[in-house]
Design a protein around this nucleic acid. Structure first.
Length: 620
DNA sequence: AAAAAAC
């Protein structure tokens, strides 16, 4: 595949003066890496420096003059810093030489629609991502692309817009990062050089790629991942999010930025301060795109994408990733896309077989005592501590504080994370949880999506969420890295509206449903269930391209009529999901649950991907 | 109705 052809003429950012080729950019710390002291000047692309451009960035700031490569900040080796790396080594050592049955990939249902869809690849070797990126893939111990990567990367490398449906944990960060990094390296002339900043002076940074995510911690995580992928590529990644001093983030921007990872608020702030311009954005990725486009976020995202100088769809390549794409969200999202390809990998919105889901009927007033006995039983089993973390979700920030306090008063090493805490507390809580210092974390939905926290053995929905998709995201924090997980929900009278979809989800995941819950589900479904308070109408777990629904029916290979009918007769989760994949609509079919190559499903099929390091390296 | 996201 000659995606090379699709690469556009190199563009130069408006205000720049000194060009530093990539192979000079990353040499400063080469000798300190554990991956050899090679300073392989031949590995970088050779090209001549472009003409110097006169700065015209709105009169603000200038690019550096004659900045030498040794002036650049030392490039810390992310493979050293990320603690996951140690786990990778352990995992690998313990499992050397085991065969992997990659035929299992073939069973994953995949739906693509759109025009001229580039074929999927089976190996990274089939894709020319470049030497540096291939090295990083090796360092990350990604042996084979995950299913979403197999499909999404060729699509993205072909320059196509993409709406991709794959559950968190299916390797989507890499799926959009690899093509972005590769694309930027293919246009070396456009790569950043440091902004001449000076104290308070402030230049304008012109990132080529923008990755937006809904929470600060998720942006940090993406940044950490992306740094690993871009190691020694010369591609510079900067993260910007609120709650942290803006000064340091601005300084980071001044050192040069190709890819900006950000939360929306801080990004808008920086744009308004004229410290960031979106004028040169070539790649836009929205992680957790359905969340980014829900009621709370949509106006802000629309403003960023449509009203702050970003190039239009077409000149800009846009990639949306999410576990779920409700029809209504797809409709909104299509404003940002041009001739896009829709991709759904795995059973969309489904949870995984290896997460055992329990639902207990617990009255509000009994919840604390019930939690206490649960935790006592847990610690008696030894299922507790550094490698058996318990994540407790509550509905409100106040509730999180109260429960944290109560747990601590009762001798449990708990901490809490929610949006009313200052960022430092949030980060401290997360770290303390991750490291097992406080193996109990009470959290609001701030921690529900995307976060990759190894060793979460138990997710407790102390308060159930209102929406079943939030439930799916929450329980997806456990059962990772091939380990089994447990999810316990406290179901109270307040949760009656959730009964139906919860039962359907559990049936789908082959979980034992308590009879009382089935009864609730049936009684709640007798009235108002179909077409009622579903935020986005039918197809909430839209694993299907909305363009293929009736009014868009252009007649390709799907049976749209049947699909539409299934929504008409049943507004159910099961109907939505089982109709998502025409290849195998059998409810009990053993394809990977949860989108992509979910480690749990893999494990349940008897394949252990840990040995390849794929699972343990963090897929979010 | 809550949560998230700027200062």
């Amino acid at each position: 595949m000659s995606w090379n052809d699709s690469v556009t003429e190199p563009t130069r950012r408006p205000t720049r003066s000194t060009y530093i080729p990539p192979y000079l950019r990353t040499t400063a710390s080469n000798n300190t890496t554990p991956f050899g002291s090679q300073t392989d000047f031949s590995s970088g692309p050779r090209f001549s420096a472009p003409n110097r451009g006169r700065g015209h960035g709105g009169g603000r700031g200038r690019w550096g003059q004659n900045r030498q490569f040794h002036d650049r900040p030392t490039n810390a080796n992310p493979f050293d810093l990320v603690e996951k790396f140690d786990e990778l080594e352990v995992v690998e050592d313990g499992n050397v030489g085991q065969g992997i049955n990659f035929d299992a990939y073939e069973d994953i249902p995949v739906e693509t629609s759109g025009s001229d869809i580039p074929p999927a690849v089976n190996t990274f070797a089939e894709i020319d991502l470049g030497k540096a990126l291939n090295e990083n893939i090796r360092r990350c111990k990604y042996v084979r692309p995950t299913p979403v990567q197999r499909h999404a990367i060729p699509i993205a490398l072909a320059g196509r817009d993409l709406m991709a449906c794959a559950q968190t944990g299916s390797g989507k960060t890499a799926a959009f990062c690899f093509p972005i990094i590769s694309g930027i390296m293919r246009n070396p002339k456009s790569m950043s050089v440091p902004v001449w900043g000076g104290r308070g002076g402030g230049g304008v940074a012109y990132p080529l790629a923008l990755i937006l995510s809904p929470t600060r911690e998720l942006s940090c995580q993406i940044h950490e991942e992306a740094k690993k992928f871009s190691y020694q590529t010369g591609v510079k990644i900067v993260v910007a999010y609120g709650g942290a001093p803006i000064s340091q983030q601005l300084r980071n921007l001044e050192k040069g930025v190709d890819i900006l990872v950000a939360t929306p608020g801080r990004l808008v702030d920086m744009i308004e301060r004229e410290r960031v311009s979106l004028r040169m954005i070539k790649y836009l990725a929205l992680d957790e795109a359905d969340r980014m486009l829900d009621m709370g976020f949509e106006p802000q995202i629309r403003r960023i994408v449509e009203q702050m100088g970003m190039p239009r769809p077409g000149p800009r390549q846009t990639m949306l990733f999410s576990a779920t794409f409700p029809t209504e969200i797809q409709r909104l999202a299509s404003d940002f896309l041009s001739n896009y390809i829709f991709l759904a990998v795995g059973r969309v919105g489904s949870s995984t077989d290896l997460i055992a889901q329990k639902v207990e009927y617990v009255q509000e007033m009994d919840k604390r005592n019930y939690l206490m006995s649960l935790l006592h039983a847990q610690s008696a089993n030894g299922a507790y501590g550094k490698h058996a973390l318990t994540l407790v979700f509550v509905e409100t920030k106040r509730g999180a504080d109260a429960l944290e306090h109560w747990l601590c008063m009762n001798g449990f090493p708990a901490t809490a994370i929610h949006g009313d805490k200052v960022q430092m507390e949030r980060e401290r809580a997360l770290k303390s949880f991750k490291t097992g210092v406080t193996p109990l974390l009470v959290a609001t939905d701030v921690a529900a999506r995307g976060l990759d926290i190894p060793h979460v053995a138990h997710v407790i929905n102390f308060d159930l969420p209102k929406d079943i998709d939030d439930y799916v995201h929450r329980i997806g924090r456990t059962g990772r890295a091939g380990k089994s997980g447990l999810a316990t929900a406290f179901f109270s009278d307040k949760n009656m509206p959730l009964a139906k979809s919860l039962v359907e989800l559990m049936v789908e995941a082959k979980q034992e449903v308590p009879p009382w819950l089935t009864q609730y589900a049936e009684s709640s479904s007798t009235y108002g269930s179909s077409g009622r308070g579903r935020r986005y109408g039918g197809g909430k777990f839209g694993g299907r391209d909305y363009r293929n629904s009736s009014q868009y029916n252009s007649g390709d290979d799907y049976n749209y009529t049947q699909y539409a009918d299934s929504y008409a007769v049943s507004d159910s989760y099961a109907a939505a999901t089982s109709s998502a994949f025409p290849y195998d609509a059998t409810p009990n079919s053993a394809y990977y649950a949860g989108g992509g190559i979910d480690s749990n499903a893999v494990g349940s099929r008897g394949y252990n991907f840990d040995q390849e390091g794929i699972v343990a390296s963090g897929w979010e």
